[in-house]
Amino acid sequence: MNLTLKIWRQKSATAEGQMVSYDVSGISADSSFFEMLDTLNQKLIMSGGDPVSFDHDCREGICGTCSLYINGRPHGPEKGVTTCQLHMRSFKDGDTIHIEPWRARAFPVISDLIVDRSAFDKIIQAGGYVSVNTGGVPDANTIPVPKEKSDEAFDAATCIGCGACVAACSNAAAMLFIGAKVSHLALLPQGQVEAAKRVQQMVACMDELGFGNCSNTYACEAECPKGISVSNIARMNREFLSAKLFAEKEKIIQDSL
């Protein structure tokens, strides 16, 4: 396959960037998208150019490192896959492919196609866990969990934190990311203990980091490589409202909000 690539090039966080055009040829349709970019980079390196920086690691669709906005869609044209699992057979010979980094105020560009997603870490640090210590927990089978709930929790927990939801959202909102974590933990008895505190703190953190609001366009669900449902956002809203309206207020939470 022969392709024309239009790629966002930006030397560093502070530098100006622009779209630059490249041609690649002889790409196998069985290659992955990254193997195609590898081929481009090898060519650039050998011809004294500057290879394109992009984030990638496991290359099997699970670590969530990869983050390319391809032809107007995060992770490209295929539904339910990450960029690393995108194969060139999804494109036609002679295609022009636009490749851009995720765009959001909370995800500043570091270099070329790489963005800083530590905002997601901060949101999890705000409460995306169950506060248990190592040691001193009951036997794993002490609390039965209905299989349906457990499965639903798992569906929410499959989030890989890639940020495609933010990239796809017209408002750069992180609601699906947070909704998934809030849902995962709120659906399990182990997570319910802190549910009220968790949702309030995570939402407050999200707002502080400059993500947008949810307009319920559901672009996030359409682009999520793990197919996480927007019903998780509704569940978060529900949790949030009931926390605001009915939860006992702890002094420390009041202060931290």
């Binding site: 239009k6 966002w8 779209m19 906005y69 032809n71 107007g72 636009h98 851009e100 765009r103 959001a104 105020r105 909370a106 017209s170 408002n171 750069a172 909102a173 400059g210 993500f211 947008g212 609001n213 307009s215």
Partner: peptide, 11 residues
């Protein structure tokens, strides 16, 4: 919402 994405996508 507009402020949440200061740089627009080219595509």
């Amino acid at each position: 919402n507009r402020a949440a994405r200061p740089t627009a996508y080219a595509c």
